[in-house]
Design a protein around this nucleic acid. Structure first.
Lengths: 348, 348
DNA sequence: CTGAAAGCGCTAACAC
DNA sequence: GTGTTAGCGCTTTCAG
């Protein structure tokens, strides 16, 4: 029997043999390259279809010296910021015909070193790193020296750049917008809960807070500030701590939505009514910010844009159209007013 | 000069040449296989280190006929169930020395067909599919016929299995637990909001609801039930609709946490106080369920276990230690009581 | 214990 | 238009 119909493991060779042409012709037809007569084209296509042929992307990657994937490093996908970031990155990667390999550094015993070591430049052509304030810069630089494209996204300080191409946003402006909103509402007793050390990843957001406080001639007090970690639970604890110590605060600026949602619960559990007794504002605008009651007033940062531009930059880097000192800026942050902020009780 | 120190693109050949051995010896040393003298071993290791050699996983995959990745298909990573699932799947995959390629079917124009076509059996050895009630069974079966391992996880009906190996949990028992909790609290006027058609993915959960209602001799009324989609917003809308139409309900069973959180907001926006005026219970126990105020009473399903067992089953399948009819069961669901449920006002 | 040869599936370069 | 040759980086034979 001269007709082999369906071959679950058909290779390009099988198709070529069956169609009576060379493998190169099959390759050309399938990739739409080279010149092939319409007749042969049809025959090859039919044969491939009949055999159920599908190209082996691994083989293609090896010979082309180019992987069909990109690596994405983030701290933990269960932090609601990252699914939004990862989705946008994924879609942009797809536009460049690439799939995404994800590493949750928080849960890798080695913080992702093994992932980078194995994947970067081998399974994946480049690495997109979502900044979490605790990046293994040494390793990233080492990869870059090897010629492997590395991009850091969500870089918070446009004026203080890393030695790696990055996508940045103006975190200080975001902090300012948030606190200006409080000041304009009439608040003077404003506390701050920062999801990092003072000079950590939220340092820019904190600087924005300080700037506005100074401009408003409000004397800052360390007693009104808390530095903690960037999680719901840490926000909750810091909120309880701060509100217990400083019950006269009328508003709190939180450096990030996730801890801010924790602060909202802390306020609620302490008997505060938000926004009547206490206003809360933060930064990011993750999906849960609009699902809480009251909704969280926050300064939206361009999350999806940072993911997309991160992937694009990676692709540009691979094409030699960007360099190690390329910096990509994103749209300015914008205030999103919801129910968690109002004028202080005294002024009403 | 006989010493080439660091070579960013070193291949196994370079290491071999430099160490004065054959590539095979290098391979053996690096993989810890074959017999190599301690002396040669050390020399090879040193050379590899010095050159900064890292094996090319793509080449290895090609020759071994085995990919270092697994594919994960889910509807959308921004639905908080999936990050929890994906993280557990990722960690389990890592235990089997594999990375994860993720596809968000909701956002692929073709619902993931292209992903499967490209990735399954080529970039990835197998596919783990997180059931969302709208699976492309034809395609999955076609992959399976090709010999590509496919596993469906989060299968809701242990008594009604697909023709594909799956990881299942007892969704009907989960529905029962939830509604029994309401009945035990003294509720009789109980509504239901289901995040799928009646016989859709939440059909098992709904059947559990019906069973308990019948056992409690509560006459079910279609007017107290709503069938909608599985999202926060759809839950919100259905909640508003149901509560407006049936203001005398004292409790609502929602088939899933995400729409249940929407229902909580709907109740709040309509002036209901939860749980004083209205109890709400649902199923899943996603992270946001414990972060809402009040906390959401829910029936926890073994999310991480289903992800882990899904990956393990995939690996077993690849090793020929499982078949196309293998079914893996998971731990029974358990009730988690939080603040969203209480005895009805009348009985207090 | 170590090496040489063959080949995984595919494509780039060049011949016919 | 189409075929041939070579080789991507690695591992699996099977000799030595």
């Amino acid at each position: 029997m001269s007709s082999k119909p369906f071959n679950p493991a058909a290779t390009i060779k099988d198709v070529a043999a069956q169609a009576g042409v060379s493998v190169m012709t099959v390759s050309n037809v399938l990739r739409g390259r080279g010149r092939v007569s319409e007749e042969t084209r049809k025959r090859v296509l039919e044969t491939a279809e009949r055999q159920g042929y599908r190209p082996n992307l691994t083989a293609r990657a090896l010979v082309e010296g180019k992987a069909p994937t990109l690596a994405l490093m983030l701290s933990c996908i269960t932090n609601p910021f990252y699914p939004e970031f990862a989705l946008a990155a994924n879609l942009e990667a797809l536009r460049h015909e690439r799939h995404l390999l994800v590493c949750n550094t928080d849960h890798e015993p080695d913080g992702g070193s093994g992932f980078l070591e194995q994947v970067a430049g081998s399974l994946s052509d480049g690495v997109l790193v979502a900044n979490n304030g605790d990046l293994p810069m040494d390793e990233l630089l080492r990869l870059q020296e090897r010629g492997i494209p590395v991009v850091i996204s969500v870089w918070e300080l446009p004026d203080d750049l890393p030695d790696i191409p990055c996508v940045t946003f103006d975190s200080k402006a975001a902090g300012k917008l948030a606190v200006e909103h409080l000041v304009e509402l009439g608040h003077r007793r404003i506390g701050a809960i920062i999801g990092s050390p003072k000079h950590g990843i939220h340092g820019g957001r904190y600087a924005g807070f300080r700037d506005v406080m100074r401009a408003a001639k409000i004397k800052p007090s360390a007693a009104d500030e808390r530095f903690t970690k960037d999680s719901f639970e840490h926000g909750y604890e810091a909120g309880k701590d701060l509100l217990s110590a400083r019950p006269d605060l009328t508003a709190i600026f939180v450096s990030n939505d996730l801890p801010a949602l924790g602060v909202m619960n802390a306020a609620s559990d302490l008997g505060y009514s938000v926004p009547d007794d206490l206003s809360i504002v933060s930064i990011t605008d993750i999906i849960p910010a609009r699902q809480s009651r009251p909704g969280l007033t926050t300064v939206a940062i361009p999350t999806a844009e940072m993911a997309e531009k991160g992937v694009s930059l990676l692709v540009e880097l691979m094409a030699g159209r960007a360099t190690e000192s390329t910096v990509v800026h994103t749209s300015p942050p914008t205030l999103v007013v919801r129910g968690s902020t109002a004028a202080p009780a005294a002024s009403r």
